[in-house]
């Protein structure tokens, strides 16, 4: 019963017009949830949470750096699942969602890298340290950029999406190896660096802001994903009747003066 309902829902979302309506209705709520969680989380992070024992106030960067890193990696996994669905069942909505996930994942990776660098300057005394985590995130950014560039290089967006999906899967296989090899490489080459978290236990007071900002990034990803996927569908089907029906209000109210 539940299973069949889920299946029906899944199949319905595979249809572009239904997906578009769904995204139009759901995305604003996700944006609202993102703003609420993030504002509350940032308030806790900047005003309520105590300064870290060792790192003082610079540890406040953690509350955005870590959620961004988590979501950047989760975004890749979600993108890979969507790419696999796209390749196996050839569902166009899945193709499009996979391609819509790449720029968001890249943006989150960028947040992680820039905040990591801004954290590194006061902590390590340098903007860039060839630390295992930062290096793998940099490689992840390049993979995201490669996927976006490959998708954009095809004139036929459907072909581009399927080819880029193959790259997404290849990247998924390779990412754990990259992470492992980079970690191995840094332990061989690098002297001591300050471990940002590592073994040290987190103070309980650091948990609530982290939870809220983490939730915020999840909602950010979901909202941006729906928005972007809907746009890609509308653009691909712009000559079809359903797009004109779907955009009718926006098309009409500007027509009046003319």
């Amino acid at each position: 019963m539940i299973w069949s309902t889920l299946k029906l829902w899944f199949h319905k979302l595979g249809s572009p017009p239904i997906f578009s309506v769904f995204a139009r209705r759901v995305a604003p709520w996700l944006w609202a949830a993102f703003f609420a969680c993030t504002l509350y989380g940032v308030y806790l992070a900047l005003y309520v949470a105590p300064p870290d024992y060792q790192q003082s106030d610079s540890a406040r960067i953690l509350y955005i750096h870590v959620p961004a890193a988590w979501q950047a990696m989760l975004a890749y996994v979600i993108m890979a699942v969507l790419a696999a669905i796209a390749l196996i069942w050839r569902i166009r909505t899945a193709e499009i969602m996979a391609m819509a996930a790449a720029p968001i994942g890249a943006a989150l990776t960028l947040i992680c890298l820039v905040t990591g660098s801004l954290w590194g300057k006061p902590m390590w005394g340098t903007w860039w340290e060839w630390d295992a985590r930062l290096t793998s995130m940099l490689v992840l950014l390049f993979i995201y950029v490669g996927i976006m560039a490959l998708y954009a290089a095809y004139d036929d967006p459907r072909k581009g999406a399927r080819v880029a999906s193959v790259l997404v899967i290849a990247g998924l296989v390779n990412l754990p190896i990259i992470h492992f090899s980079v970690e191995w490489w840094t332990t061989l080459h690098q002297g001591q660096t300050i471990r940002i978290f590592g073994e040290s236990k987190m103070d309980p007071s650091m948990i609530p802001p982290l939870i809220w900002t983490t939730l915020g990034t999840k909602f950010l990803f979901g909202a941006a994903l729906l928005d972007r996927a809907r746009n890609l569908l509308l653009a691909q089907d712009q000559h079809k009747a359903w797009v004109r029906r779907e955009l009718a209000p926006a098309l009409d109210d500007r027509k009046q003066p003319a």
Binding site: L140, G146, L150, V163, G171, N174
Partner: peptide, 23 residues
Amino acid sequence: ALTLTTRGAGALLAILVFPLVVP
């Protein structure tokens, strides 16, 4: 193979290969 029918595959090739051969 991924860039087979794209326009101007040259630079794209390098961008795709580099992260995958890091290990």
